[in-house]
């Protein structure tokens, strides 16, 4: 469904992505890990065209992201994205956050949008906070609203950019639980995360990136047991040590 072929990206002279290639089929759950600054988030943002790239091609459901003629808003509306710092709209309530794009992009009426939003809030377990503003919610609650907001667009795939990195430890599991449920329902997912427990539990494949390159990509079990590259082994030994 998502094909990434030989993608390279530069900031000035600095190459942030180097000939990255991978693909994600319908129903796949792919975890992307690697040290900070390795280009994981940038790669995600290239997939929905939030960041431009200079070389290579990315296609989403047959549509080329880099083509000049591509309707990027339409393409983005079909891929849900969840950010590290939630990025809820602070001037709107949780409910309004989820309704906005349904009404402005999909053209749903206010009643329909609200009904769907409430169902999604129920799904992520925070109906009682529907009318609160983001500042009144905990980090974990905000992130669950953000997931509901992305799901409201009925996306064909979901991308998560370090969804638990900004959370207090006791809130991580409430967000991961929602993501595990999603994965079990067959949602296509690309997840940038260092939560290796989550990766082991639901990921089909793990991609390891370093210095803008995809160093290693393997089935989950193989990745953790028989990583081939020294760089991957080093990273794993550090992250799994404690």
């Amino acid at each position: 469904m998502i094909e990434i072929e030989n993608v390279s990206k530069w900031y000035g002279d600095f190459r942030v992505l180097a000939e990255c290639s991978t693909s994600v089929a319908k129903g796949d759950v792919v975890v992307v890990c690697g040290p900070s600054g390795s280009g994981k988030s940038t790669l995600l943002k290239c997939v929905n065209g939030l960041e431009p790239f200079q070389e290579g091609t990315i296609t989403v459901d047959g549509v080329s992201v880099g083509d000049k003629g591509t309707n990027l808003p339409k393409l983005r509306s079909r891929i849900g994205m969840v950010f590290q710092n939630f990025e809820l709209f602070p001037h709107m309530t949780a409910l309004q956050n989820i309704c906005l794009s349904q009404m402005k992009v999909l053209g749903r009426g206010p009643d329909e949008a609200e009904e769907r939003s409430m169902k999604l809030l129920e799904r992520v377990g925070i109906t009682e906070h529907a009318h609160k503003h983001p500042a009144q919610l905990s980090g974990g609650q905000q992130q669950r609203v953000a997931i509901a907001r992305a799901l409201a667009m009925d996306p064909i795939a979901m991308m998560f950019d370090e969804p638990t990195s900004a959370l207090d430890p006791e809130m991580i599991s409430e967000v991961l639980d929602v993501m595990v449920d999603l994965a079990k329902e067959g949602m296509t997912m690309i997840v940038v995360t260092h939560e290796m427990g989550f990766a082991r539990k639901v990921a089909h494949r793990v991609v390891f990136m370093d210095e803008g390159r995809i160093v290693e990509e393997a089935q989950t079990e193989a990745f953790f047991t028989t990583a081939r590259h020294e760089r991957t082994q080093m990273f794993l030994s550090k992250i799994l040590e404690h």
């Binding site: 983005r76 509306s77 950010f83 809820l88 709209f89 906005l100 794009s101 992009v105």
Partner: peptide
């Protein structure tokens, strides 16, 4: 800038993102 990205990631156009977000 992340707020612009959040708006655009939902499929809002640049001007919609400006207007509503």
């Amino acid at each position: 800038r992340a707020q612009i990205h959040a708006g655009q990631a939902l499929g809002l156009t640049y001007f919609q993102t400006m207007q509503y977000v």
